[in-house]
Design a protein around this nucleic acid. Sequence first.
DNA 1: GAGTGGTCTAGACCACTTC
DNA 2: AAGTGGTCTAGACCACTCG
Lengths: 243, 243
Amino acid sequence: MMSPDRLEQDNRLPAYLRLRDRIAARVAAGEWTAEVALPSENVFAREEGLSVGTVRKALQQLVSEGLLERRQGAGTFLRKPAFEPTLFRFFALQDADRAKTIPVSRLVARSLQTAPAEVAEVLGTADCIRIDRLRLLKDQPILSEEIWLPRARFDGIETVAEGEIGPLLYPFYLERFGTFVAHAEDEVSFATPPAEIARRLGLAADAFVAVIERTAFALDGSAIEWRRAMGPARSFRYRSRIG
Amino acid sequence: MMSPDRLEQDNRLPAYLRLRDRIAARVAAGEWTAEVALPSENVFAREEGLSVGTVRKALQQLVSEGLLERRQGAGTFLRKPAFEPTLFRFFALQDADRAKTIPVSRLVARSLQTAPAEVAEVLGTADCIRIDRLRLLKDQPILSEEIWLPRARFDGIETVAEGEIGPLLYPFYLERFGTFVAHAEDEVSFATPPAEIARRLGLAADAFVAVIERTAFALDGSAIEWRRAMGPARSFRYRSRIG
DNA sequence: GAGTGGTCTAGACCACTTC
DNA sequence: AAGTGGTCTAGACCACTCG
């Protein structure tokens, strides 16, 4: 209707799923940036030539995926902080105030690299960007991260000024590359760190670290990020909700 | 309609939520045990005096909560193995076949106890049953668990024959006490174990263990179980899906 | 008070499973 | 062929937010 030139995949998916994708794309394109309301159900229904019930179903899909939030009487809004909460689950928030003290991020290195086989298999390509990042809480290094991104999707991120990126990567992915992280899979384990990592974290050579390996996925289910984070085992806490 | 003597809480919740609770209660009561279909949408609608759309919404709630599953053309079914998958996330399945080798469970001790303050606060009572359990894979102890249950809900579980309980507790909670574990919150950390636990696990005194502290919740959101599990850190893997 | 999302109804047609 | 759940429509009324 609106843009038949960019029809994407119209392979007979239900109307509410196709609408979901269309709205997600417009969100990613930055059409309704801040905390401004999206069009109402009725407006969407008229514009898209669908019934209100179908529009509602599409919107609620996006709510359940964390992209939007709806407030009765007020409207439908972006949920920019989406996924932020999950970033706090790594750290031992043993501060007196376990407030939202976002750890400071310091980019140690960024470069184009050929991903190791394990990573390339997950991301579907070996043509990658690697980011090494150190995260600190109160000047104490608490996490050393190694992040792999497919170059096709994140081209140029290796040269973006560090100040532009901010402490949280997922909001930046959305704003800059239109890529929304819909879900992720984590795997936590325990190991002795490589010497280089131990040094970065200020640990003894025979210390132990917790290891979090994460694969992040876009709305369409494709893997868009692989990362491995290591932090001192003693102060490590990982929170998770099941079910 | 059917049993007005047990009206529970009719505090003006939406009809579809009240129906959800009614169906969940009947499931818990064992009304449709095996892999037999539940009544169809139309039957429920007629019986409950609601429209099909409302019945559908209640059923889909239960699907999203993991109690039921629906198959187009076939019907609506119980999902007994609910929550089983999450029980495998603890273990390093480094076997050649990473099949569903359920670890063997051995009950070490069961007794009525006053719960420590930390646990009592979560469960809402200090009048508890404590279960100590050891889990083994190929005769190797891999997890030592300390489980706290509110006595009001699980009275008698401390004397049930061990053979009746089986290796998985959550299905047993459902079958015996009508308590469905709807979700849980885990917290993973690493520590040096108490001497007693180290001994049970066959570890050196200065070894590291992974610690999983879990609170499990019923459908109505009340906490029904607290447990702490410890296992050798080196062979530990914890998988989690976010979002 | 106008507009929003939340609930609920009463249908229709379709895709699928089962017999 | 009959019955099931999945999609979609076109309304209704309500609870809530906001100007």
